[in-house]
Amino acid sequence: MHRSLFASFALYSAALLLTLFTLAPLVWLVLMSISSPNDLTSVPLNWWPTEVDLSRYGHLVDLNNGAGHRFLAALRNSLLTAGGATLIALIVAVPAAYAFSRRGASLALLFVFLATIMMPPITYVLPLYEIFGGLGALNKTTTLIIVYSAMLLPFATWLMKSNIDVLPVEIEQAAFMEGASTAFTLRRVVLPLALPAIAATCMLSFLVAWDEFFYALIFTSDLSAKTLPVAIADFSAGRVTDYGVIASVGVLATLPPAILAICFQRFIVSGLAAGSVKG
């Protein structure tokens, strides 16, 4: 079908508008991070930096700089927390997913699992806070890892279950027939076959944990455990007068998920679709 000139014009205008709407806030965040403080405080703004100023990034990766010290500590905590929680969630989720997919565990139970992450965390955070407080476990990366793995677990179980569902069951039956136990079959047969699914699940889980703010805000109180989102909130609320610093922290915190999202878009989109729509 041929499009009329008007339709083409409308189409490309809409595409341009969408591109601007999507990219403008991001581009501006990047520009802020490399503009001089003077450019950022002129009225009206100096949109294009008079000179490219990368010094903030330099400071942020410098342990001896105050901001850098805080940023790098938060980065370390975020990596540890998100990575650790993803690992634990996967280790717990895979057997559970197998039980749902192949051992006839009731799907109602899976829905209960999922309901736990749909409940607002505010509805159970206080008892948790008091329990961890009583154990002297507040402000510890380990505590956050445990809480995050509970947060990631239902979705990871769900995603792995839908992926195990589509593996050919005869291959597992063959393994059982050959005398393998369930654990052996999981390790030697199911996991290798589900590797792409595991990778996708890990990635999505990591991104969710990387993004988490609420628990981190409540359970952490200083550099030893604060994650990037909390550190960024601190930066933006604190005494920093140079908005470019906040912007550059934001850019750095966005880079890992943005790169993952662009590189593994197909994975992520199908994972999100499976996770949110398919029942």
């Binding site: 965040l29 991104l207 989102p229 909390v230 960024i232 915190a253 966005t254 943005a258």
Partner: peptide, 11 residues
């Protein structure tokens, strides 16, 4: 289009 989704909520 995926970029806004990838930006952390706090950022």
């Amino acid at each position: 289009i995926i970029l806004p989704w990838a930006v952390p909520t706090i950022v």
